[in-house]
């Protein structure tokens, strides 16, 4: 279980990001040392049309693609709207803020401090997912998902 004292922050750009911009930003930000967990949020882009008359037909979308962060590849399933970080200490947030302010020049981005991820499983999580749920993803995604979290190493 994650310790509750780890600080968290969320980066919210004024516009939603293209996969190319997200890739460039994430590659900048992962160079900051001391990031424990990172979560990319945004509205979902499904692979097939989920409802309506065209339900079930494929949904080609240029915003849904695989990006490479560090040496890890991940499939973006959302249009990136915000990125949440859990970091080792408050100094890391300042580093993230510096990188963010330097990166977003066309439009601004806010760096919010607060608590954005669950730090321990709640009773509801226990009822839903049982005692063997992966603690690193509790409160972030459905722990029953088959895909494991991406581990980013080889920061340059």
């Amino acid at each position: 279980m994650t310790e509750s004292q780890f600080p968290q922050c969320r980066v919210v750009p004024l516009r939603m990001l293209k996969p190319e911009t997200s890739e460039r930003y994430l590659n900048e930000v992962v160079k900051v040392e001391g990031i424990r967990r990172m979560m990319v949020n945004g509205p979902s882009i499904p692979a097939v049309v989920p409802y309506g008359p065209a339900r079930g037909s494929p949904n080609p979308n240029s915003n849904r693609r695989t990006i490479k962060v560090g040496d890890a590849t991940m499939e973006l399933r959302v249009q990136v709207g915000s990125i949440t970080f859990e970091v080792e200490d408050a100094g890391v947030i300042e580093e993230i803020r510096k990188v963010t302010n330097a990166f977003f020049t066309q439009f601004p981005a806010q760096v919010l401090e607060g608590k954005f991820m669950k730090t321990e499983a709640s009773l509801v999580d226990y009822c839903r997912y049982g005692p063997n749920a992966d603690p690193s993803v509790i409160g972030l995604v459905d722990p029953r998902r088959k895909e494991a979290p991406v581990i980013i190493q080889g920061r340059k």
């Binding site: 516009r15 293209k18 911009t21 979308n61 439009f107």
Partner: peptide
Amino acid sequence: VHGHSLRLAEDGMMFDMLQ
């Protein structure tokens, strides 16, 4: 139809799940 209340994309387009 989801997208009317979301931030715009970088290129100024409204979000559309089905593009």
